[in-house]
Simulated assay, not measured.
Amino acid sequence: MGSGGGRCESRYGPAKIFRGSIVTFILLFAAGLLGGMINSLAGGGSFVIFPALLFAGVPPVLANASNTYACLPGYVSGAVGYWRHIAPYREKLIGYSMIGLVGGYLGAEALMRISDAQFSVIIPWLMAFAVTIYIFGTRINRWLASRSSGSRHAARAGAIGLGLLLLAISFYGGFFNAGLGIVLLAWLALAGYTDVHAMNGLKLLISVVVSVAAVVRFALTGSIAWVEGSVALAGAVVGGFAAAYFSHLVPAKMIRGFVIVYGVGLTLYFFWTTYS
């Protein structure tokens, strides 16, 4: 593994002595709770969970891998919930899953071959990309959908080209999980899908496959902070269920606005911390 065993402490987190403290666990559970709620209502929970892991003192590469692990149950439960919308496209699932597995594994492999210092330098750029996609993703999807014509469009674009693009997106998801769902929605629009429920279901299913491949790769080399990641995961599960139950009380646009403001501010902070 390129980053080796002597990982540096995150420059974004507190001193090492705070790792494993009750305060850290409360912070991570709260971040998971909020992230799970945001994922359920508007998407973008990784913008909360990943930085929380960094601030808790988890080294950058491990924090990124642990974020993927913490978000996985939400993808699974969402895909199960959308299954009736996914089922009509079951003949495509094997192909999508194979591409997602390969791309997710290769992305995770790439992450394992860089050091914490190298990854820290690109975190601001990855965050900027993910936040930009989050902000403009709906417009991009609408634009792509308005210019698609179902399977004829997919045929014109070329099955090979669409497959390679999905491979690249899956690679991104295995390397850095934030923003994966929105990029997948754009790909599905390009592929000619128009049913929003089917698109959300397929997005979640592909996210499951990509994340499983990545988590298996991370686990094989001990690159997941299991304790911290599991605390955030528990919070995300509780938050996701709570948000689903009380979703009628919180406008999704309000949550989305909060995520955008928070994500932009956080990205600027990462740029300032990294390059100042």
Rank of each mutant, 00 (worst) to 15 (best):
M1C: 12
M1I: 14
G5E: 15
G6K: 14
R7D: 13
C8K: 14
S10W: 08
R11Y: 00
P14L: 13
I17Y: 12
F18M: 11
G20Q: 01
F25M: 06
L27G: 01
L28S: 05
L28E: 00
A31R: 08
G32K: 07
L33G: 05
I38P: 01
S40T: 13
A42Y: 03
G44L: 14
G44P: 06
G45M: 13
S46D: 03
P51G: 04
A52T: 11
F55Q: 10
F55E: 02
V58G: 07
V61Q: 12
V61W: 02
V61D: 08
N64S: 12
A65S: 00
L72F: 07
Y75P: 04
V76W: 05
S77K: 13
A79G: 07
V80A: 08
V80E: 06
Y82P: 01
R84E: 14
A87R: 13
R90W: 12
R90D: 01
K92E: 08
L93F: 09
I94C: 05
S97E: 03
M98P: 02
I99K: 06
L101K: 08
V102P: 00
G104Y: 02
G104I: 10
L106H: 05
G107S: 12
G107T: 10
A108L: 15
L111C: 08
M112F: 10
I114E: 04
D116S: 08
I133M: 14
F136W: 11
R139T: 12
I140G: 06
A145P: 02
S148A: 09
S148N: 09
A154Q: 09
R156L: 06
A159C: 10
G161A: 11
L162I: 06
I169G: 00
F171S: 04
F171R: 01
F176K: 01
G181F: 09
I182T: 00
I182W: 04
V183A: 15
L184A: 06
L184G: 04
L184N: 05
L184I: 13
L185M: 12
L188H: 04
L190P: 01
A191F: 01
A191I: 02
G201A: 01
L202H: 07
L204M: 15
I206T: 15
V208Y: 08
V208W: 08
A214V: 04
F218G: 01
F218C: 02
T221F: 14
V227E: 00
A232L: 02
G235H: 10
V237K: 01
G239R: 14
A243E: 05
A244D: 07
A244E: 03
Y245S: 09
L249W: 13
P251F: 09
G257I: 05
V259L: 03
I260W: 04
V261F: 11
V264K: 04
V264I: 15
L268W: 09
Y269T: 10
F271A: 06
T274K: 04
S276M: 11
S276E: 12
